[in-house]
Amino acid sequence: MVTIKEVAERAGVSPSTVSRVISDSPRISDETKQKVRRAMEELGYHPNAIARSLVNRATNTIGIVMPRSAEDVFLNPFFPEALRGIAKCTHDEGFCVLLTTGNSDDEQIESLLSVVRGGRVDGVILMYSKLDDPILEMLTEMNIPFSMIGRPTISEDINFVDNDNVNAAYEAANYLISMGHRRIGLINGSLNLVVSIDRYEGYKRALAKNKIELDESIIMSSEFVQEGGYESMKKMLSVENPPSAVLVTDDLIAFGAIRAARDMKVKIPDEMSIISFNNIPLADFATPPLTSVDINAYSLGYKAAKLVIDDIKGKKHKPSCYIVETRIVFRDSVISKNNIS
């Protein structure tokens, strides 16, 4: 069966452009429409009538694609906060939200297809970005507006909102260096997620800029759960030369890391400093209060919703991206190396 991607390759355009030609979008020039339609005819491609009909009816509902099952996702406060931003925007714009989840890619695809082909949503928000994601590839082939939280991994015309995670991690690692730390560990998130890849890159750049050698023995990766941080910190403290500071790419992971340090009789921050990401409300109540990079999850959600709703309403003539600023919230989990006895 011929796909939109194959039509796009024949016509020399992106899959999203093909989708817009199918829906007869006024954004696309007549010349491009003719080129795409010629490619469709040559390949024998016939648009999905169900998908095409979505353009002509409105549900005032946005589908939300979560990265895992709801049971797992809501353990991390990032998602409720981002959803709060989505809910505020959709309420202001007169839209409702519909969550789709699954324990695997296949389950997520089945859930998403059900709501899209069933005509139950006008658009979709993808709440994450990961490598080789079949759901992202599928969304680019669907005739439906969508946006995503996170930098897309394919070079298509995609609405997305994100932080500058490379620079944010660079600034966080550089702060530790400015406090006199030269041996700095990293506890990262899952390496199939773009956010983890970008934060790892920022960490590496800060070390390289300050002529600090990268040491793989103090670089760990974890799922975004406390248990992952706990196990990663235990391993890090067991190396021959443990770090004096650690950059953790998620507060929930950091809570587990702090607990492991406490169990191994390592004092935070007297013997090890920790800086983390997300600045969730509980960060202020950790022991010690956790220095964390505020990524403004609420704004990430709000902007993602605004992008897709504007697309649905035809207010935009081309896909947009929006970068939400970050800032370090200084608390008590980092001290100067000179103060470590």
Rank of each mutant, 00 (worst) to 15 (best):
A8H: 03
E9R: 14
P15Q: 02
R20Q: 14
R20G: 09
I22V: 11
S29M: 07
Q34M: 11
V36L: 08
V36W: 07
R37F: 00
A39H: 00
N56E: 09
N56V: 12
A58P: 06
T59C: 11
I62S: 00
V65F: 01
M66F: 14
E71Q: 14
E71V: 10
F74S: 10
P80W: 15
R84A: 13
A87D: 13
V97Q: 10
T101M: 11
R120D: 04
V124L: 14
I125K: 05
I125G: 04
K130E: 09
D132T: 05
D133W: 05
E137F: 10
M138F: 10
E141A: 08
I149A: 05
P152H: 01
T153L: 04
D157G: 04
Y175I: 07
S178C: 09
G189E: 02
I197D: 02
Y203Q: 00
N210T: 08
S221F: 05
Q226K: 13
E227Q: 15
Y230C: 11
M233I: 10
V239L: 11
S244W: 00
L252G: 01
F255L: 08
F255I: 06
A257G: 12
A260D: 06
K265W: 02
K267Y: 04
I274Q: 03
S276G: 08
S276W: 02
N278G: 01
L282S: 12
A286I: 02
S292C: 06
I295G: 04
S299I: 06
V308W: 03
S320K: 08
S320R: 07
C321P: 03
V324K: 12
E325K: 15
